[in-house]
Design a protein around this nucleic acid. Sequence first.
DNA 1: AGCCCCGCTTGCCAAAAATCAAGCGGCCAA
DNA 2: TTGGCCGCTTGATTTTTGGCAAGCGGGGCT
Lengths: 229, 229
Amino acid sequence: MRSTDIPGIRSLPLFSDIGEDSFERLIRGAYVQNFPPHTELITEGESADFLHIVVSGTVELGSSWNERETCMALVEPHTTFILAATIRDRPYLMSARTISKARIIMIPSEDIRSVFENDSEFAKSIVEELAGCYRDAVKHAKNIKLRSSVERLANYLVRQASQSSEGDRISLDIEKKKLASFLGMTPENLSRAFTALRNHGVEVNGEQVRLNRPEDLTRFARPDPLIDG
Amino acid sequence: MRSTDIPGIRSLPLFSDIGEDSFERLIRGAYVQNFPPHTELITEGESADFLHIVVSGTVELGSSWNERETCMALVEPHTTFILAATIRDRPYLMSARTISKARIIMIPSEDIRSVFENDSEFAKSIVEELAGCYRDAVKHAKNIKLRSSVERLANYLVRQASQSSEGDRISLDIEKKKLASFLGMTPENLSRAFTALRNHGVEVNGEQVRLNRPEDLTRFARPDPLIDG
DNA sequence: AGCCCCGCTTGCCAAAAATCAAGCGGCCAA
DNA sequence: TTGGCCGCTTGATTTTTGGCAAGCGGGGCT
């Protein structure tokens, strides 16, 4: 693979600060691939042969136990997944599947480990990325342990709105079913949670959600940078 | 501080592989301190000036939101806490307080970051430790999202028993109140969960728990290395 | 020793969330 | 076009969990 095969790869957070030789070494063994939606990329419990980086599209990380399943994270472009398994050479704790069409870089775990040892800038990037993943996992757990389902939905909406350019209009870009799972509730319960938030000016129309009284919703949600940040 | 001040410090996972000069550098700015039980060591939201390492005793990591509080992790000797905040130079996501008397090493965050850049063995140890923390956080979230409260308790007991030398006798070394919070339920609910597990041979006597039919309990709990490992 | 505080338990009830069932409506394929 | 599948919603009901109150009992303090 030539590095020019992937426009913008050099500016990924993980690569932006590293030396040219380290970069070449990582790129040499790497694959880039386009996947259709709903493709299982990795399976919980398997061993971690590649580090994955999302270039475009969205990837879901999910876990299951005893016939139950839950969505643990939604991975957006420019970040990695299953970095921890790669580093510790342990089985994946989560499965990964594409939600939309997705373009993904895969780098052999051994290459990651060997470049890590020789390039302290890369090591720094890796550890920053990993620390970020860790903090996200902690936030996810806090969200679920400390808030009710309606509160989780409210905060999700407030956050989406703050990130959207549209101001108080949100387009849920994932199935409600999936959103429910991510927020730790059933689809039925998510429907009811949306209904409950009508009192705070939330108006739902299929994928489109409008926050008619954003201040009201925010006051109810009480977003916290240490959970939602 | 002299390194001889802390017996065994050199064999901590974080230090066992690093060079003597790196070690000296880390130790130079470090403090060791003994804390009484129930002492707040760090507070959620503050900035991360020190990496903490538990030498002896137990430390609780907890988080709060909107008057609610939850125990996120129990840190045992030889591991670190708030490593991620140290590395990213971000505010703590969790508070830390001692549960028992505890002996703790504190190393300035800057020292960690600078030695990290110069000693790839140390970098490797740091990233392994961090990956371990991340995996623990993911497991915690899976545990809570995928299991009911009774199932969580059952698995907790099975795991404790497997780690204990006593076979099927367990001594809960933390308050039930705290255990309840860690397992994501109220103290009342924990009591009821214990009662429910009588059907599977669980007998409680204050701090002492006996598993009279371990196979039965295990069959009910369905422990999973990707959650309980 | 006696008192009080606090952790734990239990009963009772309320709230939250899951489950079951039915119906609507869009989308895809025959 | 039509049939069937699937995602979503809503209602009815159950299960799970939480909250409140009362009582028990151990440990520390006066």
